[in-house]
């Protein structure tokens, strides 16, 4: 039997406690509840598609790091002479963080938005659009970070890790994944068909190939180097490579600031779009 309480319900009391806040209209502070939902849904999602994220960078490492690496031998980077596999490994880690975050924040978010329609259900509760954004982006971040941690383990087992600073790659991967996911979700909120999402490959593939992943950008003319250095994946690789090699310089703060700004812009746009789509 359904009992109807005479006093104010618990849900209302919870919402009222937050109602005085500046951000009360967009955020209830419960992004984790959406992450819990995603964790529960993971069992039904294709676990294999989740695993590919772990396997992909390993395949690239074997093919390029060792395959191509046997031809290249060593590479000079920042005054150091490195085995080629050591050169590409941290870049592949940045790529896996990016791919994990982008996949989750684009295809998965699009599916939830237009087919599962779960945001429609969520926005009819007291949860706000910023909670939804933080929940999804936070989830994508976890996914990216898990891939990065898994790959770091493989790389370490292969004996490529030389510095304890490599452990800092896990929080670095979280930052990278968060920034990519927030922009990915913002872009996805403007998409109306699945094939528009495929256009993103046009952006991601050149980023992957030409951002200093497999060869130093000094191979480019000066002006092109400036362009590439402004792209997010180059910034990500600058960060992961610096930490992986234990070369700590103040310049590593540039990518950190870069991703903080990128994450903030993505979050703001995503929140506004969700509000516009589901609450206006």
């Amino acid at each position: 039997m359904i009992t109807q309480s005479l006093t104010v319900s618990a849900a209302v009391a919870i919402a009222e406690r937050r109602s005085g806040r500046v951000d009360a209209g967009v955020r209830a502070g419960r992004a984790r509840t959406l992450m819990l939902r995603n964790a529960l849904a993971l069992r039904t999602n294709n676990a294999l598609s989740f695993l590919t994220g772990f396997v992909e960078p390993v395949i690239f490492l074997l093919a390029f790091g060792y395959g191509v690496g046997a031809l290249v031998g060593t590479i000079t980077y920042g005054g150091m002479t490195l085995p080629y596999a050591v050169y590409v490994a941290p870049a592949l880690l940045a790529v896996s963080a990016m791919n994990g975050a982008i996949f989750d924040s684009t295809f998965n978010v699009f599916f939830k938005m237009h087919y599962l329609r779960i945001y429609q259900a969520i926005t009819s509760t007291s949860l706000g659009p910023l909670d939804v954004a933080l929940g999804e982006i936070g989830w994508a971040m976890l996914r990216g970070a898990m891939y990065a941690a898994g790959f770091l383990t493989v790389v370490t087992l292969l004996g490529l890790t030389t510095s304890w600073w490599a452990l800092a790659l896990v929080p670095a991967a979280m930052l990278i994944a968060f920034a990519f996911a927030s922009v990915g979700m913002a872009v996805t909120s403007y998409m109306s068909t699945f094939h528009q999402l495929n256009w993103m490959q046009f952006v991601l593939l050149p980023l992957f190939m030409f951002s200093g992943t497999f060869f130093p950008i000094t191979a480019y003319p000066e002006w092109l180097q400036v362009v590439v250095a402004a792209t997010p994946l180059w910034q990500a690789i600058a960060l992961t490579r610096g930490l992986f090699l234990g070369v700590l310089e103040p310049a590593l703060l540039i990518p950190v600031a870069y991703f903080a700004v990128m994450a903030a812009i993505g979050l703001i746009v995503t929140t506004r779009r969700l509000d516009r789509l589901f609450l206006r």
Binding site: A10, A11, I14, A15, A28, R30, T33, L34, L36, R37, L40, A121, I122, T125, S126, L127
Partner: peptide, 9 residues
């Protein structure tokens, strides 16, 4: 369960 959690219960 998840819907209730969205309300913060």
């Amino acid at each position: 369960l998840t819907y209730g959690r969205y309300f913060g219960l």
